[in-house]
Amino acid sequence: MGKIVLTSNVTLDGVVQDPDGEEGFDRGGWFHQYVGAKDLQDWVARETQEALAAEVLLLGGQTNEWFADRMTQRNVAEGRVSPEWANRVRSMPKYVVSSTLEEPRWSNVTPLRGDAVKEVSQLKRKVDGEILIYASYQLARTLIEHDLLDELRLVIFPVVLGTGLRLLDGTSDNKPLHLVDARKLGDGLVFYAYEFAQG
């Protein structure tokens, strides 16, 4: 059985909205504003290691489009994305929860068009290893609500925005977690990994 892991960049007050500043959020762009060279180096190394260890990617429709744009050869050539990470993400099997995805823009994509909970439950039974979710916050909240998410990995950026879309808004009940990893990345980032308590 697979292990579903959500990995996310997040501000100290839990905001995940518009890290690169491309969505027009007035407090967007915090990813590059509050990260130094050593931070970025360690962040890229962690992301790459995580992708190499995972079996498949699970994405929502909008996140799928974002990563299809981001993981291009041009971005690799321009130094925006590490080659090893981009190559791994491009080559991985990708499952996309979307009722509208017709022609995927990159390879190894399987659309999941039905009920998200049912489709992801079947995927979890089928995959042996880690099922990695990037962003896809609406999907992540649904999986948390139905106790399908196994682990939460967060890279905390040293800024408080005070407003914006937060990762864990909207759960209907308490969701206990256990800390399984914590470490500093670079000079200013902190990585935390939590497993959801089952039962």
Rank of each mutant, 00 (worst) to 15 (best):
E22Y: 01
R113C: 08
K175N: 10
R88C: 10
V76C: 02
G2C: 14
L101V: 05
Y194Q: 10
I144Q: 11
Q17N: 08
L179C: 11
T100D: 00
F67A: 00
Y95D: 04
D39W: 06
V76H: 01
G79Q: 09
R88P: 05
D147S: 15
S8L: 14
G60H: 01
V15Y: 02
Y134E: 05
L152R: 04
G28H: 03
V81Y: 08
W106E: 01
T7F: 13
D147V: 13
G60P: 07
G114W: 08
L154K: 04
R113Q: 10
G170Y: 03
D26G: 06
R70W: 11
L123N: 07
T142D: 00
T72L: 04
L143G: 11
R125C: 14
V155I: 12
V120W: 06
V5I: 15
G21W: 02
T72C: 07
V44I: 10
T142V: 14
P111R: 15
G2N: 13
S91Y: 02
D147K: 15
R125T: 14
R153M: 12
G162H: 12
V56T: 09
T171P: 15
W66K: 10
A37M: 08
L167M: 14
W106N: 10
D20P: 12
R153D: 14
A140M: 11
V89A: 04
P19I: 05
L179D: 04
V190L: 12
V44R: 14
L185K: 13
D115L: 11
P176A: 05
L177E: 13
L101M: 05
G21A: 08
L179N: 07
D20A: 12
G24P: 05
A54P: 04
A53T: 01
G114L: 08
